[in-house]
């Protein structure tokens, strides 16, 4: 199928049961992602963006909907088939140290990815480890180090090298730069962008840093309380946000002003994010929305196109 995207997520929902109550982490989310493309997921904590990333990789089972990867519904794969398929879909974490085994050297950790997937002979694997270390900008000596001996930025490079060791097609990047210093963030972003070009990787890039998401993404989805409120190309969505929540998010960024006269007045969105255990009826954002009217608390706005390839779930968008 020439038109089949690399990843197609259809109406996926994920709920968690917590002490008898149901947490609506992801509600009926759909998207497509082509090879070599980046989809940015933005939203605040509790928006479900990390959960969505894990459902897309079947690290969490979806409660409803389908995830089709390379034309196959991954929920229907046997556990053996799924393990083999994992070679093509990888993940990078926010805290690389927590995701690495502190008892394994960096070289062993990267090699283990290949061992798990049964790739190459021992000599070939070792050679590939060295190539990967070099490619992600680590000295070869780092292969003999333990993860906790490296700096945060170097640890994240190890996380990237391990994910790339099995030559994936899709990588979910779950807040990969949030724990890093600004000067290191740029290095990692630069690296991710170069690797994407080189290996034709598709990324799902999860971050609360809107500038970085726009920089790396082709398309962006904004989530609020597990629901997509707006999606569009990285250019359109940030230049012409349609959903009031997207506008609030963009407006909350504190840019460095040109002069002290241009400082951003500190005025915040009122209220708190509602509990995901009992999301508001109607539009999830209506209790905090400046534009809200009676209709918003009664009727859930449907996703609709406001421009070519730009969708928003707001009664007043467009």
């Amino acid at each position: 199928m020439p038109d089949e995207p690399l990843l197609r997520v259809e109406e996926v929902s994920k709920h968690f049961k917590v002490r008898g109550r149901t947490l609506h982490a992801v509600e009926r989310v759909s998207f497509e992602l082509d090879a070599g493309q980046t989809l940015g997921l933005v939203g605040e904590s509790g928006s479900g963006k990390s959960t969505l990333g894990r459902v897309a990789l079947r690290l969490l089972e979806a409660d409803a909907g389908r995830v089709v990867f390379q034309g196959r519904d991954i929920a229907k794969l046997s556990s053996k088939e799924l393990r083999q398929e994992r070679r093509h879909m990888q993940i990078i974490f926010q805290d690389p140290l927590a995701s690495l085994n502190s008892r394994m050297t960096v070289g062993a950790a990267i090699e283990d990815a290949m061992i798990i997937q049964g790739v190459g002979t021992r000599a070939e694997r070792r050679k590939h480890v060295d190539e990967l270390l070099e490619r992600v900008g680590l000295p070869l000596s780092a292969g003999n180090a333990f993860p906790f001996e490296l700096s945060g930025g170097q640890q994240q490079r190890v996380g990237i090298a391990r994910a790339l060791a099995v030559k994936p097609k899709l990588v979910v990047c779950d807040e990969p730069i949030s724990a890093l210093d600004v000067s290191i963030q740029v290095q990692i972003i630069d690296l991710l962008k170069d690797l994407q070009k080189e290996m034709n990787l598709a990324y799902i890039f999860i971050s609360h840093n809107l500038g970085v998401v726009q920089y790396l993404s082709d398309r962006v989805m904004v989530l609020y309380l597990g629901e997509v409120v707006e999606q569009g190309t990285a250019q359109d969505l940030f230049a012409d946000p349609q959903h009031p929540y997207t506008r609030v998010l963009i407006d909350s960024i504190l840019k460095i002003p040109e002069s002290s006269a241009e400082r951003r007045p500190m005025t915040g969105l009122p209220g708190e994010m509602p509990s995901p255990f009992s999301p508001p009826v109607g539009c999830p954002f209506h209790p905090r929305c400046a534009l809200a009217q009676d209709r918003c608390s009664a009727e859930k706005p449907q996703m609709r196109a406001v421009a070519d390839g730009h969708l928003a779930a707001c009664h007043f968008a467009g």
Binding site: L57, L59, R83, Q90, A98, S99, N101, I116, Q117, V166
Partner: peptide, 26 residues
């Protein structure tokens, strides 16, 4: 339920491999 095991799972490791190489040494 931690990220270390999640990362190994994402690589396609079997439960046995995870136990032997990740949990047991720790």
């Amino acid at each position: 339920n931690g990220e270390m095991v999640e990362a190994a799972t994402a690589l396609g490791a079997t439960q046995w491999h995870i136990m032997r190489r990740y949990l047991f040494p720790n």
